[in-house]
C-alpha cells in the first residue's frame, strides 16, 4: 500500500479550504475595495445563518415533519429539546463527562503512542515503513469490530463494571487515534524541505540535533493535521464503543437507551449534546493550532 496516498485525505483539504476562505477577506485589498469586501464578509456570515434559522422555523412549524414524513414524537420540536436539556442538565452533564473522559484520555494516549511509532519508523525506516503500512490498514477496520473484542479482553481488568468498560472504551479510542497520529508523525519527521538535510550536514550537525532542531519542529503542522482527523474521530469512537460497553453510561449509550425506551425527545437532547461536544473540541483544537502555528506559512 502506498503510505502517502493512504493518509493524505481530509487534512490537506481543510488547509486548502482555509486558504480559499482567506481570499474573501484579503487584508491587502486596496482601500477603495474595502466596502465591497465588507459586503462580501457580511453575506458570508449572513447566508448560512439565515439558512439555519429557516430550517429551525420549518422545524418548529412542523413543515419539516411533513417533508420528511415524520411526527413530532420521533422528531420533537426544537423548543421541546431545549426544555429537556434544561430539565435534565445534571444527568446530561454526568454522561457528557463520561464520554469526554473516554475521548480525551484515548486521544492523549493514542496520539502519544502514535507519535512514538512515527519516531521509531523515522529512525528505522527500513522496518518502520512496512510497520506503518500495516498500521494504516487498521484505519479501514470498522470500530464496531474492535469494540467488542476489547470489551472481552478487558473483562478481568477490574471487578467494577464501570472501570473495565471505561478501559475498553478508552482502548478503542487509543487505537484509532494512534493509527492516524503515527502516519502523520512519520510524514512530518521525514518530509523535509529540499536541501534542509544537506544544510544540516554542512554544519556537521549530530543526528540528535537534526532530530530535535529540524525533524521535530517540522512535524508540528503534521501533528495538527492528525488531530483534525482524530479529535472528531475520538468522539465518534467513544460514542460507538459505548453502544457495546458493559456499563451503561455516556452520551452515545444514552441516545440508544432512550430510543429503546421510545423517549425520543431525550434522545435528541443527547444528540445535541454530542454535536456540541464535537464542535467544542474542534474549536479548541483550531484555537490551539492558530496560536501555536503563528508565524508559520
Amino acid at each position: 500500500m502506498n503510505l502517502r496516498s493512504s493518509m493524505n485525505p481530509p487534512e490537506e483539504i481543510s488547509v486548502r479550504i482555509a486558504a480559499t476562505q482567506q481570499d474573501v477577506s484579503n487584508p491587502e485589498a486596496p482601500a477603495a475595495d474595502r466596502r465591497r469586501f465588507d459586503a462580501e464578509n457580511l453575506t458570508t456570515l449572513l447566508y448560512p445563518i439565515v439558512f439555519g434559522v429557516l430550517i429551525l422555523i420549518l422545524w418548529q412549524t412542523q413543515v419539516l415533519h411533513r417533508i420528511l414524513g415524520a411526527d413530532t414524537f420521533t422528531l420533537p420540536l426544537p423548543g421541546r429539546i431545549l426544555t429537556i436539556i434544561a430539565d435534565n442538565a445534571p444527568e446530561i452533564l454526568m454522561n457528557a463527562r463520561a464520554t469526554a473522559i473516554v475521548a480525551l484520555t484515548g486521544l492523549l494516549f493514542g496520539s502519544m503512542l502514535g507519535y512514538l511509532l512515527g519516531v521509531i519508523a523515522a529512525v528505522f525506516p527500513k522496518w518502520g515503513i512496512g510497520g506503518l503500512t500495516v498500521v494504516s490498514a487498521f484505519n479501514a477496520i470498522p470500530i464496531i469490530a474492535v469494540a467488542p473484542i476489547l470489551n472481552n479482553l478487558t473483562k478481568d481488568f477490574s471487578r467494577d463494571a464501570d472501570t473495565r468498560s471505561m478501559l475498553a472504551k478508552i482502548l478503542v479510542v487509543t487505537l484509532m487515534t494512534m493509527v492516524v497520529m503515527s502516519i502523520n508523525a512519520y510524514r512530518g519527521l521525514t518530509e523535509l524541505k529540499p536541501y534542509s538535510e544537506d544544510l544540516m550536514k554542512s554544519y556537521a550537525a549530530r543526528r540528535t540535533d537534526v532530530f530535535f532542531k529540524l525533524r521535530v519542529p517540522n512535524s508540528v503542522p503534521f501533528l495538527f493535521t492528525a488531530l483534525r482527523v482524530s479529535v472528531p474521530g475520538s468522539v465518534i469512537c467513544a460514542l460507538v464503543s459505548e453502544y457495546f460497553a458493559e456499563y451503561i453510561v455516556g452520551v452515545g449509550r444514552q441516545i440508544r437507551e432512550n430510543i429503546v425506551l421510545a423517549q425520543y425527545a431525550t434522545a435528541w437532547a443527547y444528540i445535541l449534546t454530542a454535536c456540541l461536544m464535537g464542535i467544542l473540541l474542534y474549536a479548541i483544537l483550531l484555537a490551539a493550532e492558530g496560536s501555536l502555528l503563528k508565524g508559520r506559512r
Binding site: I236, I259, Y264, A267
Partner: peptide, 17 residues
C-alpha cells in the same frame, strides 16, 4: 460543522424517524 459532529451517534434517531 458536519465534520465535527458524530454522525454515527445519530444512527438510532435516523432509524426512529
Amino acid at each position: 460543522i458536519i465534520q465535527m459532529i458524530p454522525i454515527l451517534g445519530m444512527a438510532p434517531i435516523v432509524l426512529a424517524v
